[in-house]
Nucleic acid binder design. Structure first.
Lengths: 121, 121
DNA sequence: CTGAATCCCGGCGGATACTG
DNA sequence: CAGTATCCGCCGGGATTCAG
């Protein structure tokens, strides 16, 4: 495609944008940026995520080439860890910046929200 | 808050992350970065969005301090345009980078997806 | 032109239980 | 440990209609 443009309804880049914007995806990518992480570790370090959503989000990220899954069957019990691919690493600046921006500016957002809510009603 | 951390379940930064990740938010912010835009123009330039979701997303963004709404009642029919606030502009690098990354890498994503799908049966 | 109000459906996502 | 399998509530989001 010559001119990929997310403003266009049919452009596949929108799906990619949706992937990155998915509820847990950016947090998982941020965490995997620290290095390979095991399933259970992700489960407890990305607080509040359920097994189901962790599995599902990891599958989506694996399918879209952001993440690789490595199973070590020599271990008992089985051990699995996930790591970023080159593509996944190239997306890190985006999700990391987003996370940091959110952490740095959430107070401003909450204040704006209060002003808005007290002004209306 | 001393140590805002989006990995923590209770951290409000997660709401902010959700705002930016919402289906239409990043596209709208990207478009508003070109300057103030009228409702109808947004409606046709952010292809595929419905009136309902445009209104709703703009309200959310306004409430959270990303966007200002300006009504010009001297016009007939009424004319409304939306613009970014300082906070909104500070978020532009994130959503712009995300959009550009998606446009630049969606082919890699689609290829990975095909490999994944053909490998599994 | 810029919405608000309804109706409605698919699916995201949580809770829980079961498995190799 | 690392998932799968169900069940199900909620709400994101589209279509449509009405209004100032």
């Amino acid at each position: 495609m010559r001119n990929p443009n997310a403003f266009a309804a049919a452009c596949p880049s929108r799906e990619v944008l949706a992937r990155l914007g998915a509820k847990w995806a950016s947090l998982i990518i941020n965490k995997l940026n620290e290095g390979p992480v095991r399933f259970t570790d992700l489960l407890e370090q990305v607080e509040g995520i359920s097994k189901k959503m962790l599995t599902q989000t990891l599958r989506d990220l694996e399918r879209d080439g952001f993440v690789t899954r490595h199973l070590d069957a020599s271990r008992m019990p089985v051990q699995v860890d996930y790591a970023l691919t080159g593509l996944g690493r190239s997306a890190v600046p985006i999700v990391m910046t987003a996370k940091e921006w959110a952490e740095a500016n959430f107070e401003s957002v909450l204040e704006a929200r209060q002003r808005y809510d007290s002004r209306k009603n």
